[in-house]
């Protein structure tokens, strides 16, 4: 038994999926793969350029505060290799399992987000990120397209966030699906 391969179980494996609320496709909610999410820590003011290659996708590097970033998406190297290359300027804390990402897209995605966060989404550019509260939950919010966003939330709260997004999205019609 212990010799069999250990497999990871996604935090949203049992989350509700399907269409909810009014007809129409105002918002699509998608659980994203739990593939790479590292937190990089440096002294405030440090240029994060060396981190860029380790992430991938539309918003690979998300600033969450002075001297802190999330590296998202599978870029080059392993964590150990990155750590070795980046020390001592940057320290890396693996959060691949610690935070869960979901995407939110569609014409009403911004209206849905406004129900939880006070961030002015009109001022959040594509590729930009903000650490904020969505209701009671801390999230890292990133804009990945004109009508597309990603939210990263602590794993323990992933299901609560998922259910809340569906509830608040019902008036637009919301489709929820696993990755």
């Amino acid at each position: 038994m212990p010799d069999t391969l250990l497999t990871a179980r996604p935090a949203l494996a049992n989350a509700a999926t399907g269409h909810f609320g009014l007809p129409g496709a105002g918002v699509t909610l998608t659980a994203l793969p739990e593939d790479r999410l590292w937190q990089a820590l440096a002294r405030p003011g440090t240029d994060p350029a060396p981190l860029l290659a380790y992430g991938a996708g539309p918003c690979p590097l998300r600033s969450i505060g002075p001297g802190q970033w999330l590296i998202v998406g599978v870029g080059t190297g392993t964590l150990a290799e990155a750590q070795a290359a980046l020390a001592p300027g940057f320290a890396l804390s693996d959060q691949t399992h610690g935070r869960v990402r979901v995407s939110l897209s569609g014409p009403s995605a911004a209206d849905l987000l406004a129900k939880g966060t006070a961030v002015n989404l009109a001022l959040l550019p594509e590729g930009g990120a903000a650490q904020t509260l969505f209701g009671h939950l801390g999230i890292t919010l990133a804009r990945t397209g004109p009508e597309a966003f990603e939210l990263a939330v602590l794993r323990g709260f992933a299901l609560s966030l998922w259910d809340e997004l569906i509830l608040l999205g019902r008036e637009y019609g919301i489709g929820a699906r696993a990755a």
């Binding site: 820590l41 440096a42 693996d94 959060q95 399992h97 610690g98």
Partner: peptide
Amino acid sequence: LDVRIASATDQWAQMAIAGPMARQILQRI
């Protein structure tokens, strides 16, 4: 001070394995 702090509570599933047989059980994995 050069110190940087990250919360990792949700990154780790942590379990206590306790009891006189804990070592021999754990040694199997």
